[in-house]
Amino acid sequence: MTTPAPVHEATAGRSTAPVRLSGVAMMLTSALSNQLGAATGALAFGSIGPAGVVAVRQWVAAVVLVAVGRPRVRTFTWRQWWPVLSLAVVFATMNLTLYTAIDRVGLGLAVTLEFLGPLSVALATSRRAVDLVCALVAGSAVLVLLRPKPTADYLGLGLGLTAAACWAAYILLNRLIGARLPGAQGSGAAAVLSGLLYVPVGVLVFARHTPSPRALGCAAAAGVLSSAVPFLVDMLALRKVPTQIFGVFMSAHPVMAALVGWIILGQRLPVVDWLAIAAIVAANSATAIATATAPRRQR
């Protein structure tokens, strides 16, 4: 999702402790909501499959983001349109590959693999020694997660890595769009286009599998919990915490996904996978903290 510009934390004379605590609570709420949404959507896989769930989620996201962004598409130039079109394709591909990976390898593992996208972007833009160490740690953890075993679903693992590549592209395109379009206009336009791409997909899926009210409800809840709530909560959180700290708490997503997958979907991970997830989370946290402290050291 688009990251709005941070706002100064507190006015003069006001204690910043409550502000920071509320910001932390918002970030954890956003991560939990995102993964609860994915788990809720997974409950409908048996009825309409990942493609059907993603179609409904994209439609819900389109309604929310177009209401927030209010894109003035008639004023867009080609220089603004091409990254928006690219983002729409990336957005659609990212969610489909992620949800299909969740169906095949489980929520915790799929989200951890997808999380490599933003981590790779952060590591690729730095030349610090600590980031090289973090890259080696994360790379080793990925090898552990992808290790050959009798029950390995390599297609599911590959789809998780594809979702990671899409998330990396999503971040880079959002940065470009943010520089060329005001507010959330670009995200709103991309969400609408992505939703339109899923109209024929939804028609095909629902023609073959008549959706039950429960399945539609789960898919719609996935759209609200994984798109609407995180988008709005993250905007509020970034008014209370620096963007670097926000980056640290992105690490909560794989952990939340593994816990939610275990509690709601009954997807248990072996201890070695938990250790690999912890290593990736630690690598991201170290990278974000190093980024946050680097300017101070240069002064």
Results as ranks from 00 to 15, higher is better:
3 T>I: 15
5 A>D: 14
6 P>Q: 09
7 V>D: 08
9 E>C: 00
10 A>Y: 03
13 G>F: 04
15 S>I: 01
15 S>R: 15
16 T>I: 13
20 R>I: 14
20 R>M: 12
22 S>F: 14
23 G>K: 05
25 A>E: 04
27 M>C: 13
27 M>Q: 09
30 S>I: 01
32 L>P: 02
32 L>I: 08
36 L>K: 03
39 A>Q: 07
39 A>L: 11
40 T>Y: 11
50 P>W: 10
54 V>S: 09
55 A>V: 06
55 A>R: 12
62 A>I: 10
63 V>C: 04
64 V>N: 03
69 G>L: 03
70 R>N: 06
70 R>M: 07
71 P>Y: 10
75 T>D: 15
81 W>S: 14
82 W>T: 13
83 P>M: 10
84 V>I: 14
85 L>D: 04
86 S>Q: 09
87 L>Y: 11
90 V>C: 06
93 T>S: 15
94 M>C: 12
98 L>I: 10
100 T>W: 06
101 A>M: 05
102 I>W: 09
102 I>Y: 05
102 I>D: 07
104 R>C: 03
104 R>E: 05
105 V>Y: 03
113 L>W: 08
113 L>R: 11
114 E>K: 04
115 F>N: 04
115 F>S: 02
116 L>H: 02
119 L>I: 12
120 S>C: 02
120 S>V: 06
120 S>D: 03
123 L>Q: 03
124 A>Q: 04
124 A>K: 06
126 S>D: 09
129 A>L: 15
130 V>P: 00
134 C>E: 01
136 L>T: 14
136 L>S: 13
141 A>G: 09
145 L>T: 09
149 K>F: 06
152 A>D: 04
152 A>Y: 01
153 D>L: 08
156 G>I: 12
156 G>T: 09
161 L>F: 08
164 A>P: 12
166 C>R: 02
167 W>H: 06
169 A>G: 15
171 I>G: 06
171 I>H: 09
172 L>S: 08
172 L>F: 03
177 I>T: 10
179 A>L: 12
179 A>S: 14
183 G>T: 05
186 G>E: 11
186 G>Q: 08
187 S>V: 11
190 A>K: 12
191 A>L: 09
191 A>D: 10
196 L>F: 13
197 L>M: 15
198 Y>V: 04
199 V>M: 08
201 V>E: 10
205 V>G: 05
206 F>G: 05
208 R>V: 01
208 R>T: 12
209 H>Q: 15
209 H>N: 14
210 T>C: 00
210 T>G: 12
210 T>M: 11
210 T>N: 13
212 S>W: 02
214 R>E: 15
219 A>S: 12
221 A>H: 02
224 V>Y: 00
224 V>H: 02
225 L>K: 01
226 S>V: 01
228 A>G: 12
229 V>R: 03
234 D>C: 04
234 D>A: 02
237 A>G: 10
237 A>N: 04
239 R>T: 14
240 K>W: 02
246 F>I: 00
246 F>Q: 07
248 V>Q: 02
248 V>R: 04
249 F>G: 06
253 H>L: 15
258 A>C: 14
264 I>P: 00
266 G>M: 13
266 G>D: 13
272 V>P: 00
272 V>Q: 13
273 D>F: 11
276 A>F: 07
277 I>E: 07
279 A>H: 06
282 A>R: 05
283 A>Q: 03
283 A>D: 02
284 N>E: 10
287 T>G: 03
290 A>N: 15
290 A>R: 01
293 T>E: 11
295 P>W: 00
297 R>Y: 00
297 R>K: 13
299 R>H: 06
